[in-house]
Design a binder for these strands. Sequence first.
DNA 1: AGCTATTCTCGTACGCTGTACGGAAATCAT
DNA 2: ATGATTTCCGTACAGCGTACGAGAATAGCT
Lengths: 244, 244
Amino acid sequence: MARAGSPGRKAGVDPELLWAQPERPRRGRPPAHSRATITAEAVAIADAEGLAAVTMRAVAARLGAGTMSLYSYVPNKETLLELMIDQVSGEHRLPDEPSGDWRADLRQIAREQRAMMRRHPWLPAALTARQTLGPNTLAVVEHALAALAPTGEDARARLETFSLITGFVVSYVSYELGQEQASETAGRTSGELRDAHARYLQALMAGGNHPQFAQALAAPGDPSPEAVFDRLLDRMINGLTAEA
Amino acid sequence: MARAGSPGRKAGVDPELLWAQPERPRRGRPPAHSRATITAEAVAIADAEGLAAVTMRAVAARLGAGTMSLYSYVPNKETLLELMIDQVSGEHRLPDEPSGDWRADLRQIAREQRAMMRRHPWLPAALTARQTLGPNTLAVVEHALAALAPTGEDARARLETFSLITGFVVSYVSYELGQEQASETAGRTSGELRDAHARYLQALMAGGNHPQFAQALAAPGDPSPEAVFDRLLDRMINGLTAEA
DNA sequence: AGCTATTCTCGTACGCTGTACGGAAATCAT
DNA sequence: ATGATTTCCGTACAGCGTACGAGAATAGCT
């Protein structure tokens, strides 16, 4: 029945047991590719053309393989996405051990996460739709929990804290990328559409029903996203202290 | 050329100018439906069967209409999703004016948001993929900014604060729903798959490479999600105070 | 060396999606 | 009544994930 772990077809029906699979068939035709190279190709596409451009056909084409060949390595596209997430999680640089200053460590982790998400702009969207725990992701979690040990909280609470920070980074970068993309397309559009947008906001504000929001929009020029990020991050970390 | 605002085909090419459109053609065949009823039907489908079940065909079928008829009301599916978000945002109960205790108000808003997302479990996913500002959403933002006025921060900073809270709620509920769904399917599965999952985690822990994570998993039984939510929320609000 | 079991390879095909197109039908202004 | 305008929607198409199964390639056994 060909049940046990192997990259063979139908492998990894269980989403979790996927990670446990050794890449060793030992009999039969040797594979021409590997899960890692396939994943890397998928990541390259996503980086260059967005998550929507990651289709099984596109990935296969990059490898010079037939579309259906991918299914020898991966049970379905969903799994490929999980592999992508874990692969880029491997880029996270982890110090050998926590410094002892958990606040500094947490800041460091959050900055690293933000940098990762900016290198791979598809990551926030991919993450929010999925609940994944591959080895690389797990390594980051483990490091974070260790870094938080000096807070004296139990492991469960530390996991919550870390999730809180991660959630913050995800939503911040999502917003950040959304803004960048919006102003980018706004600059590129012929003017007609750009004006319509401006007029819409103008009309909204002129209505006088949203004075607060109008004020927020009218605020002086962009502060650097880094500065805002750091400030919000510090606020969050402060909040954690308050109770601990 | 039929350019000006109207529900007609091609209307609302600009994502923002969509909201400004009056629903008054005044000439020609009168519409058999309305944007609101179409949106409501789409929301009903998403609530019952998930976001993926919201297809143009399915929505049209519910209305007893032809699929392509929808395109008289909505330029594309993406827009329909934005309308869905704004429609459920309208469920947010807003007091006439802030109480003066911004901390209490913020807590209230966050709880309301969480409740909304639990009523409409597709909402977190829909939100993270989109950057929308319909009238109902805007009303909530306006209220939140007003509620935060006593902090003394400028409007921009208050908007950041509110976004921070919203981001937190989104990621918390995402996690929460993910957990519920996971344990639900785990209970329903025939046992084989369930065991595999358990064995995977067991093996992971037995490896001894993730002592912190193991400890987090081994923690005593579930505290209520409400309690955790409230606790984390308080932490965040505390954090905001620290600097302000 | 040959056989067989096992595995990878991938062309074809199916059902599903969003939506472009264009004719028919319904209504309003004249 | 006529023409302009709008809605209605059947048909069609490209692109998606992937089920199926025939063929090719390899390893271990005899």
